[in-house]
């Protein structure tokens, strides 16, 4: 579904990520873990067209995404939930959801209201707050809305950047419960996460990044049980959820 080949990218002249190879199969949840500054966010930004690669390529369902701006990548079926949510803060919750479907070609009423009903069922809180300004939501609600907005695009692949960022442990657990539910429904997802144990618990496959390179990969279950992975690359700060 999503194939990354020898991908390099960075800001200015210096590359931040080097020669990455990754594969995400249909229906798989793949996580990308690693410490602060390992290049995880840069990788996602390059995949979704916010950053031009300096080498290599990204294939989405056979389409070469190289050099496409993010609105074109989005139209091809990749939805990116960015780090720090990046909601349209002055717009209502409903407007954020409607705009989530902006790039869709099947703009028939039935299809949109079906997806709207679906996200409001997954996130019942958003139904209560649908006419509220997105910027006035709490951190947890904002993260829910950011995921809901991406789901409205009915994406082939959804990538999530640090969905736990800035949230209290109880809310992180809620967000991950929803991610687990989406995975069970067969959605294809890529998650970047600093708290490795969180992501490894829900993922099928995992890549470990350090200094802009992929240093380990394997089935999530296998990496989860591997003490050396935690000690060497993940800074040994597992987040315990109650």
């Amino acid at each position: 579904m999503l194939t990354i080949e020898k991908l390099s990218a960075g800001y200015g002249r210096a590359d931040v990520i080097h020669n990455l190879d990754m594969k995400v199969h249909q229906g798989q949840l793949v996580c990308l873990i690693g410490g602060n500054g390992a290049g995880k966010t840069t990788t996602l930004r390059t995949i979704s067209g916010m950053l031009r690669p300096s080498g290599g390529r990204v294939l989405l369902d056979g389409h070469d995404l190289r050099g496409l701006p993010s609105h074109r990548v989005s139209a091809l079926g990749l939805a990116h939930v960015p780090e720090g949510r990046k909601l349209f803060g002055s717009l209502s919750v409903m407007d954020n959801l409607r705009l989530g479907a902006f790039a869709r070609k099947d703009r028939v009423r039935g299809a949109l209201s079906f997806d709207l009903d679906f996200v409001l069922e997954v996130f019942p809180l958003l139904r209560e707050r649908r006419s509220q300004q997105a910027g006035t939501l709490s951190g947890g609600e904002q993260q829910m809305l950011a995921i809901a907005r991406a789901l409205m695009a009915r994406p082939q692949v959804m990538v999530l950047d640090e969905p736990s960022l800035g949230l209290a442990p109880k809310l992180i657990a809620e967000v991950y419960a929803i991610i687990a539910r989406l995975r069970a429904e067969g959605r294809t997802m890529v998650i970047v996460e600093q708290f490795a144990n969180l992501a490894l618990a829900v993922a099928d496959h995992a890549y470990v990044m350090a200094n802009g390179c992929i240093v380990r990969e394997g089935p999530a279950r296998q990496l989860r049980d591997d003490e050396s992975v935690r000690n060497a690359y993940l800074g040994g700060h597992p987040l315990e959820l109650a």
């Binding site: 960015p82 990046k86 349209f88 002055s90 717009l91 705009l99 989530g100 790039a103 907005r149 695009a153």
Partner: peptide, 20 residues
């Protein structure tokens, strides 16, 4: 609304498919 979204968060507007 796409105009307003671009005003709020240009990068995120691109991510939902708006040609900013």
């Amino acid at each position: 609304r796409a105009f307003a979204a671009t005003a709020d968060e240009r990068e995120a507007a691109g991510l939902v498919g708006i040609d900013t």
